[in-house]
Design a protein around this nucleic acid. Structure first.
Lengths: 349, 349
DNA sequence: CAAACTGCGGAATACGTTTTCCCAAGGCGG
DNA sequence: CCGCCTTGGGAAAACGTATTCCGCAGTTTG
């Protein structure tokens, strides 16, 4: 603070490059060149004087000013549905890690599962002029919003920005996907192998592409094996959704269902708790399997059978994809079924 | 893209205020005033023409340019230890929500539990010139780093920035805390009331203030009740830390311990899994209690006794505190013990 | 009816950087 | 010894916006 005559204080603004240059006795241009090593040379004596001055004044360059002077920012924008969801927070962790390793800055926005909100976010994001926009788990298929979003993103890319989508296919942008369909099919095969025959599937609205792919992959494999169509229950893509679907199943008296496949782990975990609350024991009375293999899947009892998805890796790949100047390519991560006690082998009926 | 003579394309930069003004047939000054309603009036006809031009060109103001022209940004910087940890992601969710409601932007950095990294983050954050810096769960007590960090933050505040700390006391900044000491004491009383007498405490390094407060609160209450000193095991503040501490306890043959208090839920949950992996059943063979009452505490079996902490609320309060021009005040959130089956009443010995 | 004032548009400046352009000094070959 | 090239410093322009200041027209006031 700067003390005033009346005893009050005034916020003193941080030192600028100008101050550093004056302190070092050189021009602003030289100071700038000394600090960020441009293509131009600076006499080494001047470099050290500028460095010393910057350190003395505790100078930090004004990122906004740099951005406008250079014509590009150092930020990466990440849009997720919900930070508190372990699925997204794992992805976010990967994105943040890769971003910081590249010396960039992450800004985060939460779409809350609303396509309109997501569109609005992307629009205002353009004002931020980020280098990269990463959309994770968007609910992009919402009616007309989809086209508007695609157009918005395309325009952003035209201006030199990079777009990466996580777990969302069929859009003209670089994408990192996981093999949702294949993983669900593999899971179906594994469950059939354990002796299960009658299934229920807890899935979310089909506009959520991830849910739909997993659902369809599971169905396709059952059909291929000549199994009857499973009981499908549509619900929210969240823990609460899984809980509620399980309640509904209990209320309906199970209808012979032996195993539940919930299209993600938080739903599966919610379902397990709902079953237990209703007095039916997951694992013994009814089998439960999920998808994602998030950390809590191990801590729940019985441990949850799931399909391991490298979420953090997906976040890392997204950033790698964004930073490599590669074209529209995409990365697909393999997934792997991991069987645990929530789906014990079933004595042959 | 702009098509070139040779058939290639060139990134075309986004429209600027200049373009909007030209399109609307007014000056830049008028366009600026029309778009963000300054104190100055603009003829309503011009306002609508500018608005129309902006919409037609899909104009978004360049936030960096605004920042430097206005002398202040619209960003809030959040520093957490680890996004993937449910404790921090819950706080982050609250911060993001409140920030977006205020029309601001969140940038996020991950300190990874290293005080040096945290200091470095805060330093480079100053270059971002955020309106607010929120530090959650910092490990601020690291040796000399602490003073440097305080100084850095003080300097930032001098320049007009606002600092809010979450769950960190005794620093000269606005702080939102939870009653860690009181909650732990209350938990101790509750466990004593259930009949437990021999305790182990899994705590983290004392530089982690949150851990220390909970540990001390628990100890103090036991001492007040005339109980013997519990067995203390120091470990990491993470799920892995809890797991490892439980293993150590098992290896030592328990030494009569009847109940474990882990200073947070992820540690408690890790410990429960470790116990189970070792063949001792949490809840029946040994009681376990945690702190935070994160969502998975309900899904684990037996459900985990914990102390409910309004984490999302804490994030919201932090932002409210930052935006209200109030002084150094602080908010303290109350906590409440919630008993579940991981600590069943103990038959009196 | 002159003077003061109000309403509003636009030119110009400011913000803190980077970068282009110009210039001076010194080294070198011819 | 002269011109040319290299080296490196500084002045100034540029980035995109907000805002101050100036000026003009029209309106009110005394």
């Amino acid at each position: 603070m700067t003390a005033m005559a009346d005893g009050s204080t005034v916020p003193s603004s941080p030192p600028t490059l100008h101050d550093v240059a004056r302190e070092a006795g050189v021009s602003i241009a030289t100071a700038s060149r000394a600090l960020n090593g441009s293509s131009r040379n600076v006499r080494s004596e001047n470099v050290s004087r500028v460095r010393a001055a910057a350190a003395k004044l505790n100078y930090e360059p004004h990122l906004s000013a740099q951005a406008i002077a250079r014509g590009s920012t150092r930020t990466v924008a990440l849009v997720v549905r919900d930070v508190a969801d372990p699925y997204f927070s794992a992805i976010a962790a990967g994105v943040v890690q890769a971003t910081e390793e590249a010396g960039l800055i992450v800004t985060m926005a939460v779409a809350d599962g609303s396509p309109e909100r997501e569109l609005e976010i992307v629009r205002t994001l353009r004002g931020q002029r980020p280098r990269v926009i990463i959309l994770a788990g968007s609910r992009i298929e919402g009616a007309g919003v989809r086209d508007a979003l695609v157009e918005e993103l395309a325009e952003y890319r035209t201006a030199g920005g990079r777009v990466v989508l996580i777990s969302q296919r069929d859009l003209p942008f670089a994408t990192v996907t996981v093999d949702n369909r294949g993983g669900a099919a593999e899971l179906a095969r594994a469950l059939l192998g354990l002796g299960y025959r009658r299934f229920a599937v807890f899935h979310a609205a089909p506009e959520i592409r991830t849910s739909r792919d997993r659902y369809e992959g599971f169905l396709a494999e059952l059909a291929a094996a000549g199994m009857p169509e499973p009981l499908a229950i549509e619900t929210g893509f969240t823990r609460a959704g899984g809980y509620e679907a399980a309640r509904r199943l209990v209320d309906r008296g199970f209808e012979d269902v032996e195993a539940v496949f919930a299209v993600n782990d938080v739903m599966a975990i919610g379902a397990m708790t709902a079953f237990r609350d209703a007095g039916v024991m997951p694992g013994t009375d009814i089998a439960v399997a999920g998808f994602d293999d998030i950390e809590p899947a191990l801590d729940v009892l019985p441990p949850l059978t799931s399909v391991a998805v490298p979420l953090r890796e997906a976040g890392l790949s997204a950033m790698r994809l964004a930073l490599s100047d590669g074209g529209e390519a995409g990365v697909r991560h393999p997934v792997g079924v991991v069987l645990r006690d929530s789906t014990p082998p079933r004595r042959s009926a």
